[in-house]
Simulated assay, not measured.
Amino acid sequence: MPASTAPQPQAPVQPSPCPTAAATPAVFPPVDPAHVSNCALPAWLPRFAFCTLKTRCIPLSEDFVRYLNADGIFLPLDADGRHPAGYRSSDDNYSDSESDNDTDDVGGENNDLNVHPSFPDLQRDIEDTIAEFGGAVFPKLNWSSPKDASWVATGSTLKCVSPSDVYLLLKSSDFVAHDLAYAYESCAGWKGSGRGSEDVACVDVVPTRPARFELVLRKWYELMPSMEFRCFVRDNVLIGISQRDVANYYDFLVRDSAELQSLIQEFFTSNIQGRFPDANYVFDVYINQRNRKVWLLDFNPFSPETDSLLFDWSNILVATIPPSPPSLPDFRVLQSQTEAVGSAHPAYATNRLPRDAVDLSTGETIDSFAERFRRNVYDAI
């Protein structure tokens, strides 16, 4: 991140329309499946393609959904029936015959999933999109990106340059698993994921999953975390804006608060307000630091499952609509590094160790462990 210039007087920021939550109880408006579905990227993209990053949505087959839900982390064969190029070395003692002997282990309820699945049509779609987008993409499912699994990818990044990169991230992510089975859990009437006999969903009230899953591939950009912001909308009024990276203090955000606040308010008024089908929602934006252009990144449900970052949800829920007197939305950034909520532990640390990884761990350094984990994933097929 470039160093900031000498401190300058801070432009005054409008008073907050979000009062402290006093004695008024914070009550969320009911969340229904339609609201959650409206926040899925394939649902909102047609309406907001003009103000978001380049994106392609690829419908996924049920075979691929079953592959994502299957236990273990393993990669499909490529379109030619070959193992993907990976991290296998000459001393790994790998042989096709040894792998083939493991097919009996699949057994049981996973018999319909070949131990060596292959998705040639999907592979071609991914390759075509990567080529169209300049050689690299950022993957998501309907709602979530596999950002909790970046540790397993080369370079610890979500930058994907091949279908195997996409598969590995999706298969390793708890966030993606949440999309597959728990996307509607914030809805009233939701009873479970329906994935097992002891966890049955009330399908007459809330769906267990969307009718169709889609792979979302976005053109890869080197975005600066400091310029990502989360915006809270209640009754079609932009109430609050929070810095997304709450683990780091950026002095230029304090200095430029008034300008950034106005840019986001103008973007909301011109491009978002009245276009999204719900009155209450959360959206994320990115501001290009060089030319100050604002880009829409995502929509999120207006529910406690969405991280409120530098706000307390009670502030958003009891804010006066419209604010009186009229004012710009409350704009919150860290005022010093001592306010940062980060710690010595990396982000999503609790999501970093699936059972497969724990079984492989022998106490070595994270770099050597990650390399050995990747080799085992490729060799397992």
Rank of each mutant, 00 (worst) to 15 (best):
R82K: 15
H83F: 12
P84M: 00
A85Y: 09
A85L: 05
G86T: 01
G86F: 02
Y87M: 06
Y87T: 08
R88V: 10
R88Q: 12
R88N: 09
R88P: 06
S89G: 06
S89Q: 14
S90G: 08
S90A: 14
S90V: 12
S90W: 09
S90D: 08
D91I: 13
D91M: 04
D92W: 01
D92K: 03
D92Q: 00
D92A: 05
D92H: 08
N93H: 10
N93A: 14
N93S: 09
N93Q: 05
N93M: 10
Y94E: 06
S95C: 07
S95V: 01
S95T: 15
D96A: 15
D96W: 14
D96Q: 09
S97M: 12
E98F: 10
E98S: 13
E98G: 09
S99F: 14
S99R: 11
S99L: 14
D100F: 02
D100L: 15
N101W: 07
N101R: 11
D102M: 12
D102P: 00
T103R: 14
T103I: 12
T103G: 07
T103E: 12
D104G: 12
D105N: 07
D105E: 14
D105H: 00
D105R: 13
G107Q: 03
G108W: 07
E109Q: 02
E109M: 09
E109V: 09
N110M: 09
N110W: 12
N110E: 08
N111S: 15
N111E: 14
N111T: 02
D112N: 05
D112H: 10
D112Y: 03
D112I: 00
L113N: 04
N114H: 15
V115I: 13
V115N: 07
V115C: 12
H116E: 07
H116Q: 02
H116C: 08
P117C: 02
P117R: 01
P117L: 08
P117M: 03
S118R: 15
S118F: 04
S118H: 00
S118T: 10
